[in-house]
Simulated scan of single mutants.
Amino acid sequence: MVGAVAVLGTLGVLGYVQNQTDAHPNIPTPDMQVNAQLEPQAVGVSSFRSDVQRELDVCFRCHGEGGVSLRPAYPTIAGQKPDYIRRQLQVFRHTGNDPSDEVLYRNETGDQFDAFRSKLPHRNNVAMDGMAKSVPSALLDSVVKALSSLPCDGGKPKVITEIRPSLPTKTNRCVVCHGQNGISLEPNTPNLAGQHQVYLRRELIMIRDSARGLIPDANAPSRSHPTMEAQAEHLTDSDIDEISGYFAALDCRGGL
Rank of each mutant, 00 (worst) to 15 (best):
L8G: 15
Y16M: 07
N19T: 15
N19D: 08
D22W: 00
H24M: 06
Q33A: 13
Q33S: 13
N35M: 13
F48D: 04
R54Q: 14
D57Y: 02
A73N: 13
A78C: 05
A78I: 09
A78D: 03
G79K: 02
Q80G: 10
R86C: 03
R87P: 00
Q88E: 08
L89K: 01
V91A: 15
F92W: 07
F92E: 03
T95C: 11
G96N: 06
D98R: 11
D98Y: 09
D101M: 11
V103D: 12
G110F: 01
Q112L: 08
F113Q: 10
F113L: 15
D114K: 09
A115N: 13
F116I: 00
R117N: 11
S118T: 07
R123H: 04
R123S: 13
D141C: 03
S149K: 02
C152S: 15
D153M: 07
K156P: 01
T161N: 10
E162A: 12
L167N: 01
L167G: 03
T171E: 02
V176L: 12
G179C: 04
N181K: 11
G182E: 11
S184G: 07
S184D: 10
L185P: 00
T189S: 11
A193V: 03
Q195N: 08
Q195T: 09
V198K: 11
R201D: 02
L204P: 08
L204R: 03
I205G: 03
A211E: 05
A211G: 04
R212Q: 12
R212Y: 01
I215R: 01
N219R: 04
R223D: 03
Q231P: 00
A232Y: 04
L235Q: 05
L235N: 07
S238T: 12
D239H: 11
I240W: 10
E242K: 07
S244L: 05
G245V: 01
Y246A: 14
A248N: 15
A248Q: 14
L250N: 09
D251N: 14
R253A: 14
G254K: 08
G255W: 09
